[in-house]
């Protein structure tokens, strides 16, 4: 493509280096140039064409197809495509190079919106999520403010995929909760530019990051020990909310005495930070199979203690572990493969 403008920095990289845009990945031009990746965005962004050109640093004059509009009302009918080329050609000659300033600012705003929406899709693609993982490793997304999460790294997420609804939030994989970024400059960044999917997809794509690590420690993967490799519900058991559970739940105390649950001001929200002591309790499917499986006579023993389950599960556990080892030998977790394939097919 033509980059005759002579600017040393592309629009994309200057956008990403703006204050408050630290969470953004640089979307590759390849990704943007593939029309399939832009499906549907035309109707969501005003002055779509101009915005796209701005993002790609294409000079409007260099392109035969481009439109050079300046009336604000064009914003409303971008979906209409019945503008005749001749008319446009005439007008372009008229205006020459210069766009009036107000027009430029409208296009600039549109370009930012368009970039954000492309970004939402890009970071869920293989190349994009890879880039985000590099940013994650470099601590670009900040840390969890919760004391018991021990400053673990967070991920930027949106609570909605529709722009204009909410600002970007930080998802903490250690307590599975979302937080407002500490710096107010992020309160102008739209959450939809990251989207609802990215946070959870990141964890499924890179299941091996040790999520209990603080941002001060270098990023590391879970060890290869048997204990670390146990999987539950498609995730490494050690990575299921490592910031929650016993010892990580705040217990209110007055002069050393715990505040009773029966008090009006007693604890009511501890469930939010709890986790079963035996994480295998969460493996509902296997538990069901063990309760109701063939050869097991205790069909209605639903309320048994987790200890009893653990004892009876032992042989099954070993079988699964062996299975997992085989899978790990191939290529990480089954979830990772699925997620990666899914992302690839999107490209």
């Amino acid at each position: 493509m033509s980059t005759s403008s002579g600017t040393p920095e592309s629009w994309i990289s200057s956008f990403c280096s703006l204050l408050g845009h630290e969470y953004f990945a640089e979307v590759s031009e390849e990704f943007i140039e593939d029309d399939f990746n832009l499906t549907g965005l035309q109707s969501q962004v005003a002055m779509y064409k101009e915005a796209l050109e701005m993002i790609l640093d294409v000079e409007p004059e260099d392109d035969e197809d481009d439109e050079d509009e300046e009336e604000e009302e064009d914003e409303e009918d971008i979906s209409g495509d019945g503008r005749d080329l001749a008319h446009r050609g005439e007008r372009r000659r008229h205006n020459g190079h210069s766009r009036i300033a107000s027009d430029l600012s409208v296009i600039e705003a549109s370009a930012e919106m368009l970039y954000g929406l492309i970004h939402q899709r890009f970071i869920c693609s293989r190349a994009g999520i890879q880039q985000m993982s590099e940013k994650y490793e470099l601590n670009h997304f900040g840390v969890c403010p919760r004391t018991n999460c021990n400053q673990t790294r967070t991920l930027p997420v949106g609570l909605s995929d529709i722009p204009g609804e909410d600002t970007v939030k930080l998802f903490c994989p250690s307590c599975l909760d979302v937080y407002v970024p500490p710096n107010s400059r992020f309160q102008t960044v739209d959450g939809a530019f990251f989207g609802r999917t990215f946070g959870a997809l990141f964890l499924m794509t890179f299941p091996e990051y040790d999520l209990s690590k603080s941002h001060a420690d270098p990023v590391s993967n879970l060890s290869r020990t048997l204990e670390d490799q146990i999987m539950i519900n498609g995730m490494y058991a050690r990575n299921i909310a490592p910031g929650l559970g016993k010892g990580k739940v705040y217990e209110p105390k007055i002069y050393g005495f715990r505040v009773s649950e029966m008090a009006k001001s007693g604890p009511r929200m501890q469930w939010l930070r709890k986790k079963p002591e035996d994480i295998h309790v969460l493996d509902e499917a296997r538990q069901y199979a063990e309760d109701h499986g063939a050869g097991d006579s205790e069909d209605d023993d639903q309320s048994m203690s987790s200890r009893a389950v653990a004892r009876r599960r032992a042989p099954g556990n070993a079988r699964l572990r062996q299975q997992q080892r085989q899978q790990a030998g191939q290529n990480g977790s089954p979830m990772a493969v699925e997620a990666a394939n899914g992302a690839e097919s999107e490209l």
Partner: peptide, 24 residues
């Protein structure tokens, strides 16, 4: 509360924990 989702679908591991916490 926040429930992690991928393309609108809950993620199994997190959803199982949420169910357990709701029961608590």
């Amino acid at each position: 509360r926040y429930i992690p989702r991928v393309y609108g679908f809950k993620v199994h591991a997190a959803a199982a924990l949420v169910r357990w916490q709701n029961k608590e």
